[in-house]
Simulated assay, not measured.
Amino acid sequence: MKGMIIGPYWQGFKRSVVTYTRIPLKVDWDDNIKHIPAVCFLPWIGLVVGLLSAWPLWFDWSASLQALLMLLTAVLLTGGFHEDGLMDSCDGLVGGWDKEQRLAIMKDSRIGSYAALSIWFSLSLKWALLSELLNIIPSSFLGFIYTLSGWCAVHVIARFIPIVLMNTLAYVSMGQSKASSMIAKLEPSQWLLALLPCVLIGVLAFSLLDMIMMFIFTALLLFLMRLYLRKKISGFNGDTLGASEQIGEIFVITCLLVSYS
């Protein structure tokens, strides 16, 4: 009985790990196997990525080097999955003149000027913000706990944003897309599963008031994202979900910096 309850969650989590990271796991993709939709575990995958990429915090290195290695490790763990979406989205959404052209550009594997600019500014911003955050946090056990929980919060909360977008916008694409098989409209219990790590890690990383303010501004950010995507392509696709996650990371690091300051 216990296995019948836990089994679908474990299957969904493994599928999520294989889909959203480069961590090797053996997964049976048979549709007849009961599983919770993999996308429900996206914030949990953020927790895994955050914990594994935080290893530089154990060493007495400069904040800038720690930040660089943390970012590099996170990219290696995910294979640049979300960064690729950011680059494709910027090329298409900014460079295209209409919906069809924007979607066509996003399907093109070549990198344009907007993609190059977006990834440079995105990584530079994250490195600068994270370095500043590491610099102002005192070197102590509590400081370590705050930094670790804050870094995990960045990856957890940022990965909740794409879930909201895919459940509140229409899916659009040109031709076949790998992302279409991962799109899922969540049930109430699945929403709780996705939201749980955001709250648990948020409590550790923020004060109660700051966490409430952060979630309010996250809702505002989501509102603006939805307006922009509706205007540009009348919905979302896999690339824009990746882009929203990257914007979310920058946003949460900024919130942490403001909260601690």
Rank of each mutant, 00 (worst) to 15 (best):
I45R: 11
W10Q: 09
V75W: 13
I157F: 01
G92L: 02
I45S: 14
M87A: 15
G112E: 05
A243R: 06
S62R: 08
I6Q: 08
E100T: 06
C198W: 13
S207Q: 13
F236W: 01
L186K: 11
K34P: 08
I253A: 01
W61Q: 10
A179G: 09
S124W: 14
S173I: 05
A205R: 12
L229G: 06
P24C: 04
R22C: 15
K14C: 14
W10G: 02
E245G: 08
W127Y: 15
D31M: 09
L220R: 01
A128K: 07
P197T: 14
G143Q: 10
W97Q: 09
A205K: 05
M4Q: 14
T168H: 09
F217C: 10
G238F: 08
A116F: 06
A74Q: 05
Q176C: 04
T19I: 12
T19M: 12
I136C: 09
F141R: 10
T147M: 11
P162H: 03
V199M: 14
I105R: 02
S113Y: 02
Y114G: 08
P37F: 09
A54Q: 02
L256Q: 00
P56M: 11
S177K: 07
S181H: 15
W151I: 07
D239Y: 04
W55P: 03
A104P: 02
A194P: 10
S113C: 00
S89C: 04
L125T: 15
Y228S: 12
K185C: 07
T147W: 04
C198Y: 07
V18A: 15
W127N: 13
I250C: 12
K178C: 07
W127L: 15
F81W: 10
E245L: 14
P37K: 14
M4P: 07
S62Q: 09
A158I: 05
S244N: 06
